[in-house]
Nucleic acid binder design. Structure first.
Lengths: 356, 356
DNA sequence: CTGAAAGCGCTTACAG
DNA sequence: CTGAAAGCGCTTACAG
């Protein structure tokens, strides 16, 4: 199908030189005369010669390619991230004209097999993985294979590999402190299953902030649901139907927070007035929610770029553990956080508590 | 850095066979005795042998890799699409264990050079491109290079290549007809610059539907702005400040429609009551807008998968023009479409018109 | 059924 | 400064 590209051999024949000489001219070897170098380059341009990369990479023993393991989302709206990440990664790699391969797997068992195949078959010289589990099998495998890698996020013990992460614990401390300053004390946490470290980190921040403010975390105010808008909605419904419901809720992600807003509105309450909500991610979309979502915004823009640069450095020989970068999220106030403002129902509960 | 993978040579030595025999055993050649075939495969598993892909592909003369040209978005929330598309593409390719390379470029000039390099260097056996311009230079280049490709979207003349598209003209006919059935006649179009064919197609649908209903398209009701939520907001502001504003607006995309909703609310009007809005795309996010967005939903889920399958067929020798697939969008009614309902200001205008 | 050899298209010491 | 040759790790006719 594809028209046969011109090879080094035909280029050399065209010039009356040997392939070795032509190759060295093209690669700017010092021992090639400037005049033939120019002659060779001109001819290469004219004939549209491009070195065959499979051949070149086989010869130099370097795939010059990095793999990105796509995280599997459901139909979640959390997807915009990977596009941004890919863009940044691609930018970092393109400066050295490395290629970016995307890899995806259905199951996590599948994923391990995929990884092993990728590196054993010499297809990639490094890998980037996202959203690690607390104790991530992929990381152990990659270490065993001695394949350079970098992770977007962290595991529980994050000492001996390279990672880039945003401090979820810190972010949730900030969010909860903000709500406490607004007068809230019954603050709920809407989260997702804790096998992912980021889910645990953010819960830790929530708990720590309450403790630091002399409040005790009420177990019934911690709701774990599916990591999606629907999950957020279900969890928030549970919270609102408590005999003593929260006046504020922090959500694991903006996506879950959107579900929380829906639940609050469905209960005839006004987000940001009757119940405050703070999300996490800083998705641009939150500007358009009802009402606009207050959130802890990640400095997401540079993640891909940083991960790519880190990976390249490690491939060049850097010690992975030297490359660990923790960024901070910042509060973006929109319209879903507001001062404590008890509804009649909530006031009744408070009064009842005071009298008991 | 990476531990040296085991090669065919060491595997053969380990077995006391030649590399040729081992290779044929692994590739299920019929002329290899079943017993040695098994013996070879077992040993390969034990030693963790994986054929080096650079070598293999060089030898068979097939890169077994497809490139995806990432469309450049701004910080748009239209990005979720590419993630879904990648997923589908990856699925299609993985069934034949082909790889997926993502390529991105800053400028379109850059992009042409990128494409040429990709195919001339034998890195990809096919390419998928998105959002073509009306007359897209990439398509001409790819045809010149005789490189198999498939496009997501169409150009103005879409006869001689393979594409997958959703019928934007049809979608906008449906949307406008729906609004007319609701009693609207002053219907505006909020769009983006027309160099992309999809922008033109949707405008054509708008115009055609008006004509088919005996209405004439009022030029001042067609607003072209930047392809983003901000663009949608600016365009809609202009519309609402017209002396005779529209009672409904169809928007090029959900993203632009979100901007339209913001503009309408900012004017103290209620989307879906005072002014109807219909978007396009069917982003899940629209469920959470204020109010939830009525939209023409694309059957986006299978686009990637279909494009991948088509490309593979063409690489196998199919005539590209045999693979042209046009899907239809369908109306998803949420809360921003409603029956004609004139505000006082609008009624005044109408009255004035009636009296003149 | 297996071996020996050529070839895929490059790069890179080694001669001269 | 350039040529001749080996090698990267595979696949695949061709012998036997």
């Amino acid at each position: 199908m594809t028209s046969k590209p011109v090879s080094l051999k035909v280029l050399a024949a065209h010039l009356g030189l040997t392939v070795g000489t032509v190759s060295r001219a093209l690669n700017n070897y010092a021992d090639i005369s400037p005049v033939t170098r120019e002659r060779v380059k001109r001819a290469a341009d004219e004939l549209g010669y491009r070195a065959n990369q499979n051949a070149r990479r086989l010869s130099i023993g370097n795939p010059e390619t990095v793999g990105y393991l796509m995280p599997r989302f459901g139909n979640s709206i959390a997807q915009p991230f990977s596009a941004q990440l890919l863009q940044g990664l691609g930018e970092a790699l393109s400066r050295r004209s490395w290629d970016l391969l995307v890899v995806q797997s259905d199951s996590s068992k599948d994923e391990l097999a995929h990884i092993e195949r990728m590196v054993r078959s010499g297809r990639v010289g490094g890998l980037v993985i996202s959203r690690p589990a607390k104790n991530d099998a992929r990381i152990r495998l990659l270490q065993e294979l001695k394949c350079p890698f970098v992770v977007h996020g962290r595991t529980a013990s994050c000492a001996d590999y390279a990672w880039y992460d945003v401090d979820g614990e810190d972010a949730f401390v900030t969010a909860v402190n903000h709500l406490i300053e607004l007068g809230h004390s019954r603050i709920a946490f809407v989260g997702a299953p804790l096998q992912h470290q980021f889910a645990q980190d953010r819960l830790n921040g929530y708990t720590r902030a309450l403790e630091e403010n002399g409040l005790t975390a009420d177990p019934e105010l911690i709701q774990i649901a599916e990591f999606s808008d629907d999950g957020g909605e279900i969890a928030t419904n549970m919270l609102l139907e408590l005999s003593n419901p929260p006046t504020a809720v922090v959500c694991l992600s903006d996506t879950m927070a959107l579900g929380a807003l829906a639940a609050i509105r469905a209960h005839g309450l006004q987000p940001g007035v009757d119940v405050s909500v703070i999300g996490y991610d800083g998705l641009k979309f939150g500007v358009h929610s009802n009402p606009p979502l207050t959130t802890m915004a990640q400095p997401q823009a540079h993640a891909g770029r940083r991960l790519g640069d880190m990976l390249l450095s490690i491939i060049d020989g850097d010690e992975p553990s030297q490359h660990q970068e923790l960024r901070r999220a910042h509060l973006v106030r929109r319209k879903t956080d507001g001062p404590l403002h008890l509804t009649t129902a909530q006031t009744n509960v408070s009064n009842r508590e005071e009298t008991t």
